[in-house]
Design a protein around this nucleic acid. Structure first.
Lengths: 220, 220
DNA sequence: ATAATAATTTAGGTTAGCCTAAATTTAATT
DNA sequence: AATTAAATTTAGGCTAACCTAAATTATTAT
């Protein structure tokens, strides 16, 4: 059994690898996203390496071993499944679930998680549009476009968000943007890369580049 | 915030106090039920005392302060609520839920637990017949008789069990004994204190004193 | 190519929560 | 009341997981 802390490292390595097209994850990247000092990260990487959960060459960053990847996927599966449960069954808001799911993901019971999966009807995506890995650890790969990369007049539906911070999610809620909301790019401002978008085929609003780049679109 | 370990101590102190009619809990009692060496328990008691969670006089055992009791009740509320969820919603067996609930009880979110309470319909008892404290920490006090203390011909329904070990619960399952099952004492053997009981008004079986004393009966 | 800067690791320290062994206090027995 | 036994605490150690400061390695810019 991995400790809770080890599980957090594995999970974050996995997530960064996904974003990085599998380029090795650096100590500082982990330090940043986990808010743990780089020296402590170095410490832990050594330990994870001894346990054959990561491939680690000093100064060169890390990738996951088969074993490490399997562990990571399992934790992510639990995290996303619990998020789905919290939103769909307990009716929490999508900006209220991340922190709780961070705790629930470490609860250990394969039996429970399989029963939960059944209870929820084998959900495929969590409330932020991220895919939920199946029992065997298979993750559907998505092929979405970043809203910030869309050209004027391009349109589609919100498929996922890249940021889980409550402040960000509450912002979207205010704009009536959720998963599956139809969006169309009306205009793009060269100066600050902000864009004007039509939401739900009705309201037109301006959003900053910062917001746009955290929204993924399924083209229609 | 109390650590997970501290929470476990508080919970166990609370449970032992209930069984002991509020007599102070000794170091060895805690050591036994928690499978932690007495020396370590002593250590922790000192810490809990500094945090004003227990009243502790060396060599004299401990009781909970108001603050400590509130914490304990909150953890027990979560534990029992999750057990209810696991059995009623996820359809786990009553002998499969205790260990998982031990982990779930440490997940911290008042919002979530209140929403869970709502989702479950404000359940009053967990699958083992133990009362679930309400939001304000109120626990209904029960007035059940121990099966081992019943006289011949006395009868009633199973109201709760005092032991959560899977082996014990599986044993009851085999005998078709659950919460609310009608039982009647047919005979009592002086030699080993075992008893003959009629289950569900049909089958007559012998059960050991060891079993009987872990079953609580609501007299009818 | 070298110097300056950034990234990373090493060294040494801290705390929580456990342990064993030894010392102390309380309870039980004669 | 004194002795023995049981319960409890103290002392000293260990490990995981963090930290800061210093040393090392890699990268970037001149």
């Amino acid at each position: 059994m991995a400790t809770q802390s080890e599980e957090n490292y594995l999970k974050n390595i996995f997530i960064i690898l996904e974003k990085n097209n599998s380029l090795p994850v650096t100590t500082n990247e982990l330090s940043d996203v986990m808010s743990i000092k780089a020296a402590s990260v170095s410490d832990m990487l050594k330990r994870l390496s001894e346990k054959r959960l990561i491939h680690y060459k000093k100064y060169k960053g890390v990738v996951l071993t088969q074993k490490g990847k399997a562990r990571a996927v399992c934790i992510i599966r639990k995290h996303r499944m619990w998020e789905y449960f919290l939103v769909e069954k307990l009716k929490l808001q999508w900006d209220e679930v991340h922190a709780v799911a961070e705790e629930l993901e470490h609860v250990n019971s394969d039996l429970m998680i399989d029963k939960l999966d059944l209870f929820l009807g084998h959900p495929k995506f969590d409330p932020h549009g991220d895919p939920i890995p199946d029992q065997r650890g298979k993750v559907v790969s998505q092929n979405f476009k970043n809203l910030s990369a869309l050209a004027i007049h391009e349109k589609g539906n919100v498929a996922a968000v890249l940021e889980q911070q409550p402040a960000f999610l509450r912002h979207l809620k205010k704009l009536s943007i959720q998963i599956r909301t139809p969006l169309e790019v009306i205009d793009k401002m060269e100066f600050d890369k902000s864009m004007s978008i039509k939401i739900n085929n009705t309201t037109i609003t301006n959003i900053s580049f910062e917001i746009a780049k955290n929204i993924l679109i399924a083209k229609s």
